Simulated scan of single mutants.
Amino acid sequence: MKKAYYQHRFLKEVARLLSEAELKAGVTARMVKIAYETSVPDKDDKGTTRVDYLQARNFHSEIKSKLIDADKALESAEIALKYVVGVNIDQPLRLQDIPLDSMPIAPIESKGMKEAALERNADLKTLNLGIKFYDSRQRLAKKEYLPKIGIQGQYVGPEDRFGVKNSWFVGIGLNMTLFDGFSTKAKVAQSQIQLEKIKDQGILLEKAISAQISALHKTLSGLTEKMEVLRGAIEETNERVNLAAEGYSAGLIEYEKLLSAQKTEIEMKLARLQCLVFYHTMKSEIELLSGAM
């Protein structure tokens, strides 16, 4: 369910980001159009050309097309989330609007994650119960070698033809099987094989969980570092876009530099959103392994 929720959040923020980018691209396209229509190029300066205007329009239409695709994907993700949660498709999905960037990103220790996963994992608990069960079966099979001691009782009556009256005889009996056709030995061997098999399964499962936790931890660490790098890159690209817009308005730089800055800004923001949703998705997988969900 968490994966569906994070996917819905991601697509919603992508749609919001593209909506803002589409608005900015539309303003820029109108600005380029005005500059092209009023441009009087000097001898050494070609000014704003028709190619610049067409590039601005093309960039605006690309953003609009991506926004339409994002809205469709968001609608599908919302239906999938409703299905997982158990909400009727015709009813609105009421969720608190929490941006991915505001969700906590706390460092997680690999050793602590492994201990929690090994302690809480449901499959491992089931195997441990199976080990106890087959161990008890093995001990029970071995008891077949021991003699059986029990209380025996016998009733005699009614009075027989010799005049012996009704009577009870009570005593302790000892029963030992001298030869049972190796059936006890076969039971012990079979229970031993089953016990060793399930123990091996438990060891393999522990190793698999530990390896998976280690891989997820490395992925989380890498995503955390990448998000910090992208955070700084986004701040720089924002400044670059603002400077490029001011420079283009003042006629100091060409439109291509402004277009490049705008594309880089969108790419950086989308990359950081992807890192955020990957981080929280990986974290939910760790919670699933450890049984913390």
Rank of each mutant, 00 (worst) to 15 (best):
K3F: 07
L17M: 10
A25E: 01
M31F: 12
M31P: 03
S39G: 06
D45K: 05
T49Y: 00
H60D: 12
S65M: 05
K66R: 15
A73R: 13
S76A: 13
A77S: 08
I79F: 12
L81G: 10
V84I: 15
V85P: 07
V87G: 05
L95T: 02
I98R: 09
M103F: 02
P104F: 10
I105H: 09
S110R: 12
E115P: 01
A122L: 08
D123I: 09
I131A: 08
I131S: 13
Y134E: 10
S136N: 13
R137Y: 03
K143R: 13
L146F: 05
P147Y: 07
I149D: 09
I149H: 07
V156A: 13
P158W: 09
G163F: 03
N166M: 02
N166W: 03
F169M: 13
I172K: 04
L174C: 06
L174G: 10
M176P: 00
D180L: 08
G181Y: 01
A186Q: 09
K187N: 12
V188G: 03
I203H: 04
E206P: 05
I209A: 08
S210G: 06
A215V: 02
H217W: 15
H217N: 15
H217P: 08
K218H: 08
T224W: 07
T224P: 04
E225F: 06
K226T: 07
E228C: 02
E235M: 11
T237I: 00
N238F: 06
E239S: 14
V241I: 04
A245S: 01
Y248F: 07
G251F: 12
I253F: 05
I253V: 07
E254K: 14
L259V: 00
E265T: 00
E267Y: 00
K269Q: 11
C275I: 11
V277C: 01
M282H: 14
M282A: 14
I286H: 01
I286W: 12
L289F: 11
L289Y: 13
S290D: 04
